[in-house]
């Protein structure tokens, strides 16, 4: 089956000499929910810019649903819907007009464009605001409006560059639900995010970019399986003056009611409780210190920087 996106040896050097991409290779299968991760300035937005024609590449190939951007960019573009990181709409235009115009740029008739605008605005909870100028929308609404705009031509590949940046937790979860549903219906989604919980929950495959190179390209499950140990924070009932000594786990006392424990993946959590109970330590609640993917991500990027 043709890949939704295939990138081979993509290079980008800006006029000021900055090497943003240093030979990127990526492939995203049709129907995938794919995370493109990396620290700020790693090159994620440059990749998106190149495949959406907003940035000129220096060299390399990008193929979208079988269409090479060098030879059939217009065809390739018809497959893509994009939500950029920054707001990029006319703030003085009513949002329904923004959507209808966007459909027009893809050759969709005006009456059909109005129908589609109604569909997506209702779906994303913006129908009541359709006559408002974009400037008057809240941050979360602006993001949703941009998602609706990206979907006006029913793209097969939806690229979301930090879609939930600055969005409150409730709106973020609503957006996640919406995106999962969209992916289930067959839309391939590529997501960049700094919320690694988002990537872990939503994405089946992941690529991590750092300093213009892909340092990891695998499935989310495979990546998380590589995590050797997890750190848990335990809230304990009785106050402690010093950290207990356990056989299989490293323990640190954070304060008299909080312990931090490293749990080896092979040892497991039940073993931890087997050791704590005889010592009379009653655990009230526990949580991961950091998101699992975040732990891995930081480790990989740190290793990359140290190298």
């Amino acid at each position: 089956m043709t890949c939704a996106l295939e990138i081979n040896d993509l290079h980008k050097t800006y006029r000021n000499g900055l090497v943003a991409l240093d030979g990127i290779n990526l492939y995203v299968e049709q129907g995938d929910f794919f995370a493109l991760l990396g620290p700020n300035g790693a090159g994620k937005s440059t990749v998106i810019g190149i495949i959406t024609s907003l940035i000129n590449k220096t060299s390399g190939k990008a193929i979208i649903y079988g269409n090479d951007i060098d030879t059939s960019f217009a065809k390739a573009k018809a497959f893509i819907g994009v939500l950029p990181q920054e707001y990029n709409f006319n703030v003085w235009e009513p949002i329904e007009e923004i959507l209808v115009n966007q459909a027009g740029y893809y050759g969709i008739e005006r009456h059909e464009a109005f129908n589609r605008a109604e569909h997506w605005l209702k779906k994303l909870g913006l129908w009541e605001k359709r006559r408002d100028i974009a400037r008057n929308l809240s941050g979360g609404m602006k993001r949703r409006m941009m998602i609706a705009r990206a979907l006006m031509h029913n793209p097969k590949l939806l690229i979301l560059d930090e879609p939930t940046a600055g969005v409150d937790i409730e709106n973020r979860r609503t957006m996640w639900k919406f995106l999962v549903e969209l992916n289930r219906q067959g839309t391939t989604i590529i997501l960049t995010t700094h919320y690694l919980e988002e990537a872990e929950n939503l994405c089946r495959n992941i690529a991590i970019i750092d300093k213009g190179k892909v340092i990891e390209h695998t499935s989310t499950r495979e990546l998380i399986n590589r995590l050797g140990s997890e750190t848990f924070v335990l809230d304990i009932k009785q106050p402690l003056s010093k950290a207990p000594i356990l056989n299989c786990h490293a323990v640190r006392l954070i304060d008299e009611h909080t312990l931090e424990v490293d749990v080896d993946k092979h040892t497991g959590i039940s073993n931890l409780f087997n050791e704590l109970t005889p010592l009379g330590i009653d655990v009230q609640s526990m949580r991961n210190k950091t998101n699992r993917l975040e732990q891995l991500f930081l480790k990989m990027v740190d290793e990359g920087h140290a190298a």
Binding site: T52, S53, L54, F73, A74, K75, K77, A78, I80, V82, P84, E86, Y87, N88, F89, N90, V91, I98, N101, Q102, Y105, Y106, G107, R149, H153
Partner: peptide, 14 residues
């Protein structure tokens, strides 16, 4: 300036 030129640039409009 508002970057809404990108709406057209990302589309197949020649």
């Amino acid at each position: 300036f508002q970057r809404n030129i990108e709406e057209m640039m990302v589309s197949p409009t020649p």
